[in-house]
């Protein structure tokens, strides 16, 4: 049985790539993440930190080992089941915002809720609240090409939180931003973490940002070193 406050439980997880020559992107990882935790995964390029994040986000599958999200083993789920878990329990923010260019900020934030089948009125109310939370209440009807990089990334954060997920996953989410926008996004994440008590897992190269999280997990050559 999973412990009450564990949201992610990873046991002996490995990810191997390659035809013929096997390369271990992740090698026998054990990691538990507590609900509401704000943690950073750091490590040099190619260390396996993004692979770990993608496996936690059920975007990728492990070669061996198990991963439990909120007590559910997601390693052997079907494609549709994984899509449902991603929609209901996970929110993603990537280095680039990947907003749908033909939709307004508000519509972009509503999109995960429509995928989940939430009613339009309810979706609009929540999206409006989230955009206000990230300081974009006056930019809701703007399309991505009418917003700055930092504003787009804030819309992406609001979108990631749309379905009130258990975990928000950020992959180098400030990597494309200047230091001022970076700080602003971090402050927003921190505030939202305190407000909504969701688990925030971010992969970053930015040591200063990592230092400001509750916990740092360091990966080198596919292994957790601290």
């Amino acid at each position: 049985m999973p412990s009450e406050n564990k949201i992610v439980e990873i046991k002996n997880l490995s990810k191997v790539y390659g035809n013929g020559v096997e390369v271990y992107a992740l090698n026998s990882i054990d990691l538990n993440i507590t609900k509401g935790e704000f943690m950073a995964i750091v490590g040099p390029s190619g260390s396996g930190k993004s692979t770990l994040l993608h496996i936690i986000g059920i975007l990728d599958t492990p070669t061996s080992g198990t991963i439990l999200i909120d007590g559910e083993n997601v390693s052997d789920m079907s494609d549709d089941q994984r899509a449902t878990v991603r929609n209901k329990k996970l929110g993603f923010v990537f280095q680039y915002h990947h907003l749908l260019p033909d939709f307004t900020a508000l519509e972009n934030v509503m999109m995960p809720m429509f995928i989940a089948g939430v009613e339009k009125k309810e979706a609009k109310e929540r999206a409006t609240q989230l955009l206000s939370d990230v300081g974009l209440h006056d930019r809701m009807e703007h399309r991505p090409n009418e917003l700055s990089g930092g504003q787009c990334q804030r819309v992406a954060v609001a979108r990631a939180l749309a379905n009130n997920p258990d975990i928000l996953i950020g992959d180098e989410l400030t990597g494309n931003l200047d230091s001022k926008s970076s700080r602003m996004v971090y402050d927003i994440l921190r505030r939202l973490n305190e407000k909504y008590k969701q688990t925030f897992i971010i992969v970053t190269h930015d040591d200063a940002l990592a230092e400001r999280t509750d916990r740092i997990v360091r990966i080198i050559d596919g292994k957790i070193v601290s």
């Binding site: 975007l59 449902t84 990947h98 749908l100 995960p112 995928i115 989940a116």
Partner: peptide, 16 residues
């Protein structure tokens, strides 16, 4: 491609 990937990350099924 990237938008399709993002939709999948948001939970859109392959059928969708």
């Amino acid at each position: 491609k990237k938008e399709i990937g993002m939709l999948m990350a948001m939970g859109a099924t392959r059928k969708s």
